[in-house]
Design a protein around this nucleic acid. Structure first.
Length: 129
RNA sequence: UCAGAAGGUCGGGUAAUCGAGUUAUUAACGAGCCUCCUCCCGCUUGCGGGUUUGGGGGCUUUUUAUUAAUUAGGAAAGUCCGGGCUUCAUGGAAAUACGACGCCGGGUAACCCCCGGGGGGCGCGAGCCUACGGAAAGUGCUGCAGAGAAUAGACCGCUUUUUAUUGUUCGUGAGAGCAGAGCCUCCUCCCGCUUGCGGGUUUGAGGGCUUUUAAAAAGUAAGGGUGAGAAGGUGCGGUAAGAGCGCACCGCGUGUUUAGUAAUAAACAUGGCAAGGUAAACCCCGUCGGAAGCAAGAUCAAAUAGGAGUAGCAGAUGAAAGUGUUUCCCUUUCGUUACUCGGGUAGAUUGCAUGAGCAUGUCAGUAAUGGCACGCCUAGAUGAAUGAUUACCGGCCCUUUGGGCUACAAAACCCGGCUUAUAGACCUUCUGACAUU
């Protein structure tokens, strides 16, 4: 409703291959964290930018069809757009990795998967309604 | 009505909430440039200048916001052909390799594409399929079956000759009994004259052989059988049986004429007739072909390494390069002097959306297509937008208070094609069968 809420909607995106590789390396070095749920895999690592950034990875392992991969990516993006603005102040890089179930899973379950993963990694202490 | 054939169109819709890219408009804050007034300085006193003061106007632009428009395909796919575009090269001659293509004519920027025609094959038909030059240039391969599979071949069968054997009846069988016809021979009979020989539409009697079967030799490629394929097909003649051995028609080869731009077709004449298939096996013949690709390339540029470009001069006996390879000719470079300055990775910008473009009309053409007129601008991303969620509606199917299905598949420099995938819906023309009038 207010101006501040509108500003919070905009989440920075990870777009360079180097950024993705940095998150992977952080997890390998025990600096970052990774949690697997039925609908997606969530990887996190802290960054120096000071704001929350998110990236999406859907490989050909999910589906050989480009149509399906695009749809999975869009659903993940829609879920992230609903949840992540609430935690925008944390300086984290988050990578969401699509799975085979991501396409057919109910959208509400997909949303709960994201919250559950974040909670398990102690990023979110209280589940906001 | 049912079953088909050809061509074409479409391939979900509405609403609500939330959201993305591009373009344009407007506004705000900031930045840059230009300009006017003011201010300051100089002396040439109406001109020049400004690290200066204050204000106005215009243009460009980052970010944010508002509003509006627009945003996946018929195949966007496979990346199989043909081009545009870009860079590297770019001289002449000869030999040779590699690849693609292959009936004829036309269309096109071009094609392995399209259209029209011809030949061949399939279908009752509408129509469909066709990699469709050469197998008497050579080499290779050719399973199984079959007597024989490529300088053909004799298994069965048919025919002739020779040898051996019998047909029928009875009998389980071994075997026993018994006939007819033909031919040969001896005796008899008759005739002739050469008087012991010759002959017989003749009489009678006896004996032997064949007809039945088997074997051998020879002939035979018509028949059976095998096969995808067995030396053209059908009929008549012919023959011991057969055979293009002869003839007629069909097929095939050759030649001529006619029709056609041509592929080819038809007619006539002529040859008795060539010897399996495979060239999507090598190959032969003919035609064509530089290479790499938007991660091409261009611009701006943190970093890193030391050169890069232009012009002049010199030039050997040598080395290298000249785009498939080799050879020859030819050319250039490798040296030095002078001048100039950037270089180029990460990253950014560009290439990047007006094009062999689309729609309508008209004219030419059987058509593909082309000419003309008028109108339109229609995705442009780059970890990659073109959507997410919910509800309702629509369509099809079923066992119908309900359930199921709703496809294939997403631009990545751009066009022209091909190929493959596709739930379902619709339109036009045509064919066959049945029924009714």
């Amino acid at each position: 409703m207010t101006i501040t809420e509108n500003k919070n909607k905009d989440i920075a995106r990870l777009r360079k291959r180097a950024d993705f590789l940095r998150v992977q390396k952080a997890i390998k070095d025990q600096q970052g964290r990774k949690w697997v749920s039925k609908g997606m895999i969530v990887e996190t690592a802290s960054n120096e930018v000071g704001v929350l950034r998110v990236g999406f990875t859907v490989s050909k392992r999910v589906s050989k069809l480009a149509v399906t991969r695009n749809r999975v990516k869009r659903r993940l993006r829609a879920a992230a757009a609903e949840i992540l603005p609430l935690y925008q102040s944390q300086n984290l890089d988050i990578v969401l990795i699509g799975r085979v179930e991501s396409e057919k899973r109910d959208f509400s379950d997909l949303r709960n998967d994201l919250i559950w993963c974040l909670k398990k990694m102690n990023i979110v202490q209280d589940i906001a309604s």
